[in-house]
């Protein structure tokens, strides 16, 4: 499966990279990180242009973020928020306070959470300009890291893709554990006071 995907990158080039990053920003299980690493590696090999690969990856990712945000704003998804008004109010408050950082960091450091933050940003009505600037900045970092590492470590992109995916998963799980742990501690303190 991985080898079949890697074989598609030099033949389909930037278009494949753009489609992969677009779909992954909508939470579809597309190995976009591996495709970007391969794009960087085949650019180093002279098969593809680095600027074309990086531009396509960035364009696809930003378009995917915008699609996720628009989906969150759309009526049917937004109405899901009514199921838990308290949770929505909490999310709205958090995104209003630290929304730019949350969107920026979930593009690359906690990337598995990115598509869900897109939906949440749309659902809670995070200002579009704020969302878009954080999305573009974060995606630029994501694209630079992955295409750059693909270029530098071109002889081991397959294994590197697996390692980076696991590292992003570990970072995201650690963040969730931290937030859940903090919520538990606060609940414990409230109960002790009450």
């Amino acid at each position: 499966m991985t080898e079949a995907l890697l074989a598609l990158v030099p033949t389909h080039g930037a278009a494949l990279v753009a489609i992969a990053t677009f779909l992954s920003c909508l939470a579809l299980p597309v190995p976009s990180s591996l495709v970007m690493l391969a794009g960087g590696a085949f650019a180093a090999a002279g098969d593809l242009g680095l600027a074309a690969v990086a531009g396509a990856a960035l364009g696809g990712a930003v378009a995917g973020d915008q699609a996720g945000y628009a989906l969150g704003r759309a009526g049917p998804v937004r109405r899901l928020g009514r199921l838990s008004p308290a949770l929505m109010a909490e999310a709205r408050g958090r995104l209003a306070r630290g929304g730019w950082g949350a969107v920026f960091l979930t593009r690359w450091l906690f990337s598995p959470l990115g598509p869900w933050v897109n939906l949440a940003a749309g659902m809670t009505g995070m200002p579009w300009r704020r969302f878009s600037s954080a999305s573009a900045g974060g995606e630029a970092v994501w694209v630079a890291i992955y295409t750059g590492l693909g270029w530098i470590f071109m002889d081991r992109i397959d294994a590197l893709g697996a390692s980076l995916g696991q590292a992003a998963g570990a970072a995201s799980a650690a963040l969730i554990a931290f937030l859940a742990g903090r919520a538990l501690l606060r609940a414990g303190r409230r109960a002790a006071r009450g």
Binding site: P10, G46, D155
Partner: peptide, 17 residues
């Protein structure tokens, strides 16, 4: 599990690669 290079040339690689 360090990322290591594949030991052999594979079919998905290009001549430039």
């Amino acid at each position: 599990a360090p990322a290591v290079a594949p030991a052999a040339v594979q079919g998905w690689m290009t001549p430039g690669y």
